[in-house]
Design a protein around this nucleic acid. Structure first.
Length: 111
DNA sequence: CACATGACGAGGG
DNA sequence: ACCCTCGCCATGT
């Protein structure tokens, strides 16, 4: 498994219920600041193989970004079940629900 | 190696 | 706030 892919999987797995992260946010933490679209690739290939909470990943505007209607509805339902409100424009309040991990590094050595 | 793909993002009109 | 265009880059073929 490529390091980037591995990091993305790890990060998404760590998003707590009731919170969301954006593609760009995840890409940056995974070491590719402009690699939002690579996160998409990982989701396409891995969300079934692994049991990732893929529904907690949305775009930078706070919208449900998925194109497929059936999948989009599944995502909205999953979020609502966790208490994340999705409005009539398929958007969530990022100010309220965005997850910002304190540290993604396992060993933090602060001098 | 060249080229296409993609559930994106920033910026301008 | 909406719409469009362009840049992005790890992977797959």
């Amino acid at each position: 498994m490529k390091p980037f892919t591995e990091e993305v999987i790890k990060i998404i797995s760590n998003i707590p219920p009731g919170k969301v992260m954006t593609y760009g946010q995840i890409a940056k933490l995974a070491g590719s600041p402009r690699g939002a679209r690579q996160v998409v690739r990982v989701l396409h290939s891995m969300s079934k193989a692994y049991q990732l909470p893929w529904h907690r990943v949305i775009n930078a505007k706070g919208e449900i970004s998925i194109q497929d209607d059936t999948l989009a509805r599944m995502q909205i339902e999953a979020l609502e079940d966790e208490g994340v409100h999705v409005d009539s424009s398929n958007r969530v309040n990022l100010i309220k629900y965005r997850y910002e991990p304190e540290n993604e590094v396992d060993d933090v050595n602060i001098i």
